[in-house]
Simulated assay, not measured.
Amino acid sequence: MSGDLAARQAELVAALVAGGPLPPGFAPAPVEAARRALLRKRSGDVARHWPLLAAGLGADWPATFTAWADGRPTNGSLRDGWDLARKLSDQGTLPPLGAEELAAREAASHYDGHRPPRPRRMPAVARAGGAVAAQFAGRVRLLRPAPR
């Protein structure tokens, strides 16, 4: 019985946060409302870790984040923001403030997209969207802001 409950809970969680199918016995409207609420909450959590990215996108932040995050399980707010910023950078749609924040993060930490970020031990230079940041002795400096 407890294995059954655990399996049903896992199916519900997958439907809420990872784009899984709706499990039998659940009404679609309340599950959809809960899924959207969780995406909004997740958007706010990511914006707290990536304030310049969110500010750079302005009123488009919730829609941009939701479109990217819908159907993706979270890797945590820091990593979700990092992955979104990299995707926007690859698409050429990263706003200047987000580019500066991404360049600073890339200079300060190593993140491979799979494991949690680790602080860099050696000096590093990072570029994103025209912004250039450097890390030396644990301090990050923005050498060139992103073009506006």
Results as ranks from 00 to 15, higher is better:
residue 69 A to M: 07
residue 65 F to S: 02
residue 82 W to K: 00
residue 92 G to F: 10
residue 108 A to T: 01
residue 142 L to G: 11
residue 47 A to G: 05
residue 82 W to D: 00
residue 139 R to F: 13
residue 96 P to S: 05
residue 125 V to L: 08
residue 11 E to Q: 12
residue 103 A to E: 08
residue 50 W to P: 12
residue 76 G to Y: 15
residue 29 A to M: 05
residue 54 A to K: 07
residue 99 A to N: 08
residue 77 S to K: 01
residue 12 L to P: 03
residue 16 L to T: 00
residue 24 P to S: 12
residue 63 A to F: 01
residue 5 L to G: 09
residue 136 F to P: 00
residue 136 F to T: 14
residue 58 G to V: 01
residue 112 D to I: 10
residue 143 L to E: 08
residue 2 S to I: 14
residue 94 L to S: 06
residue 73 P to G: 08
residue 115 R to N: 09
residue 110 H to P: 01
residue 42 R to W: 05
residue 116 P to C: 09
residue 140 V to M: 07
residue 138 G to C: 09
residue 127 R to W: 10
residue 90 D to G: 06
residue 114 H to A: 14
residue 14 A to P: 03
residue 139 R to H: 12
residue 59 A to L: 14
residue 43 S to N: 01
residue 95 P to I: 10
residue 32 E to D: 14
residue 93 T to R: 12
residue 19 G to D: 03
residue 16 L to E: 05
residue 21 P to K: 02
residue 46 V to R: 01
residue 104 A to R: 14
residue 58 G to M: 04
residue 39 L to I: 11
residue 95 P to S: 05
residue 144 R to Q: 11
residue 54 A to P: 03
residue 101 E to A: 03
residue 59 A to I: 13
residue 109 S to G: 01
residue 2 S to L: 13
residue 83 D to Y: 02
residue 61 W to T: 00
residue 7 A to C: 02
residue 120 R to W: 07
residue 30 P to E: 05
residue 62 P to R: 02
residue 111 Y to P: 06
residue 37 A to R: 12
residue 119 P to M: 06
residue 109 S to W: 15
residue 57 L to D: 12
residue 59 A to T: 15
residue 26 F to Y: 15
residue 54 A to I: 05
residue 16 L to G: 01
